[in-house]
C-alpha cells in the first residue's frame, strides 16, 4: 500500500516528462508562419531588382548602354529620339547640390544647438516642431516652392524661369533638414558626457567642447547622416516635378527649368506612352539608374557608421 502511494507520487512529480507537445501547437507553427511573412520584405527587394533589370533589358536592346550613360541629350519623345541620361543626372545633381548647401550647414548647426546648447525646455519645444516638419508631405513642399520661394527668387532676379532648379533645390534642402539634424544629433548624443566633463573641467567653452570633442567623436555618424540626407534629396520626386520643370538639359543654369530622373519617371508615366515601347521602357532604365545611385549611397552611409563607429570606453 505504502509503496503504491509512493510510486504514484513519483509519477505525478515526473509528469513533465510525459506531456508531449502536439506537432500542430501554436508554439510550433507560429515561427514558421511569421518567418514566411517576414519573407515578404525579401520578395519586395527581389521584385524591385528583377523588374528593373528585365524591363530595362528591353530598353538596352534598343539603346546601347554607352549611348545611355554618356549621351548628353535626352529627348525620348522626339521624332528622332535621343537617349542620353546625363541631362537627367545633371538635373538631379543640381537639385542635390542646392539642397546640400541649404541643408548640411543648417542641419549640422541645429544638431549642435539641440545637443550641446539648448536648455532642456527649449529642446522639448523644438524637437516636436522638427518632427512636424519631417512629416509634411512632399507635395506640400512642392507647392510651397512653386507659390512662395519661386516668386521671391523672381523678385530678386527677374529673368528667372517660373520653373527653376534653384527654388526646388532650396525646398528639397528644407525638407531634409529635420532628417540630417535628428540623425546628427543622435550621433552627438551618443558621445558620453564624461568626455564633455573632462573638456569643461579644463576650461573649454561650449563651442570648444562641441567642435573639438563632440563633433570629432561623432564624426562618422554625422557624415552618415549627410550621405543619407543627400540620398533622400536624390530620390525626392514631387518637389522637383512641381517646381523644377521638365526640360532636361546640361546648361548648369540654376535659374532655368531642368528635369531630374525622378521627375522624368513621374511625368512620363502620366502620359500615354504605349506599353512595351522603347519610350515606355525609358522609365525603367532611368529607374534602375536612380535605384543604383541611391542604393550605393545608402550602403555607403551604413558602411561609414559601422566601420568608423566610435567605441567609447
Amino acid at each position: 500500500m505504502a509503496r503504491m502511494k509512493q510510486s504514484k507520487n513519483a509519477k505525478e512529480l515526473n509528469s513533465f516528462m510525459q506531456k508531449k507537445k502536439g506537432i500542430y501547437s501554436w508554439d510550433r507553427m507560429m515561427p514558421i508562419i511569421l518567418a514566411t511573412i517576414a519573407g515578404i520584405s525579401v520578395l519586395t527587394t527581389i521584385g524591385i531588382v528583377v523588374i528593373l533589370i528585365t524591363e530595362s533589358a528591353g530598353f538596352f536592346q534598343a539603346v546601347s548602354i554607352t549611348e545611355f550613360l554618356f549621351g548628353t541629350q535626352w529627348t525620348p519623345l522626339f521624332a528622332d529620339p535621343k537617349f542620353g541620361v546625363l541631362p537627367l543626372i545633371m538635373g538631379t545633381f543640381m537639385i542635390t547640390l542646392v539642397a546640400s548647401i541649404v541643408a548640411l550647414p543648417i542641419g549640422f548647426g541645429s544638431a549642435i544647438y539641440l545637443s550641446e546648447y539648448a536648455p532642456r525646455k527649449v529642446r522639448n519645444f523644438i524637437k516636436p516642431i522638427l518632427e512636424i516638419l519631417a512629416g509634411i508631405p512632399t507635395i506640400v513642399y512642392g507647392f510651397f516652392a512653386l507659390t512662395f520661394i519661386t516668386p521671391i527668387i523672381k523678385m530678386v532676379i527677374p529673368q528667372t524661369d517660373l520653373f527653376n532648379a534653384l527654388s526646388a533645390g532650396i525646398v528639397v534642402g528644407i525638407m531634409i533638414i529635420p532628417m540630417i539634424s535628428s540623425l546628427s544629433e543622435d550621433a552627438m548624443n551618443a558621445v558620453p558626457s564624461s568626455l564633455r566633463n573632462a573638456a569643461y573641467a579644463m576650461g573649454s567653452t561650449k563651442l570648444e567642447v562641441a567642435l573639438k570633442v563632440v563633433v570629432p567623436a561623432s564624426f562618422s555618424g554625422i557624415i552618415a547622416s549627410f550621405v543619407l540626407g543627400l540620398s533622400r534629396a536624390i530620390g525626392e520626386t514631387m518637389i522637383v516635378t512641381l517646381a523644377a520643370g521638365a526640360l532636361p538639359n546640361m546648361d548648369f543654369d540654376f535659374l532655368k527649368s531642368i528635369q531630374t530622373m525622378t521627375a522624368y519617371i513621374v511625368t512620363t508615366s502620366q502620359g500615354d506612352t504605349a506599353y512595351g515601347s522603347v519610350e515606355y521602357r525609358t522609365i525603367y532604365a532611368v529607374g534602375i539608374t536612380l535605384f543604383v545611385i541611391t542604393l550605393i549611397m545608402n550602403i555607403l552611409a551604413g558602411y561609414i557608421s559601422r566601420k568608423f563607429r566610435e567605441e567609447y570606453e
Binding site: P192, S194, L195, N197, A198, A199, Y200, A201, M202, G203, S204, T205, V213, P216, A217, E310, E311, Y312, E313
Partner: peptide, 21 residues
C-alpha cells in the same frame, strides 16, 4: 571667468575618460 578658473584647477574623474584621440 569660469573657463579661466578651471584652467587653474585640474580634475581627474572616477572613470578614465580620455578623448577618442
Amino acid at each position: 571667468n569660469v573657463e579661466l578658473l578651471r584652467k587653474e584647477i585640474g580634475m581627474v574623474f572616477q572613470q578614465p575618460n580620455p578623448f577618442p584621440k
